[in-house]
């Protein structure tokens, strides 16, 4: 780990975040969009852990602990919402769920 600097970890986190945002914009399947959102969240936790390690404090790591907790709860509620949406509308494609636009 001697030659891996903070910038390398932040670059990885930034690229992961960019990939996640691209997926949110491009994909039409709500479940894949939701997974890309989770990827953005994970990229942010990676940056937090890197900052925490290189600044030698514990606070960033604790923050990541809470983010993982909240993300688990959020995924459960979000997937329940998507299942409820599917039962009412019969689709999980974002370009078919345009009732408010039309």
């Amino acid at each position: 780990m001697e030659n891996t600097t903070l910038a390398h970890h932040l670059l990885l986190a930034g690229l992961l975040f960019a990939l996640g945002l691209t997926g949110v914009l491009v994909r039409r399947n709500l479940l894949v969009v939701y997974m890309c959102l989770e990827l953005m969240l994970t990229a942010a936790t990676l940056a937090l852990v890197a900052f925490s390690r290189f600044n030698r404090t514990m606070d960033g790591a604790i923050f990541v602990f809470f983010i993982i907790t909240v993300a688990a709860a959020e995924v459960a509620v979000g997937l329940a919402l998507i299942v409820a949406l599917y039962r009412r509308r019969g689709s999980v494609k974002s370009d078919e769920l345009v009732t408010l636009r039309d």
């Binding site: 600097t5 903070l6 910038a7 932040l10 670059l11 930034g14 690229l15 030698r56």
Partner: peptide, 21 residues
């Protein structure tokens, strides 16, 4: 976004290049 990340974290010098120690 990728170009922004590369510029900010690699070329701009805003992130110190120190190793983890």
């Amino acid at each position: 976004l990728a170009a922004g990340a590369v510029w900010l974290f690699v070329w701009s010098g805003a992130v110190p290049g120190t190793a983890a120690g």
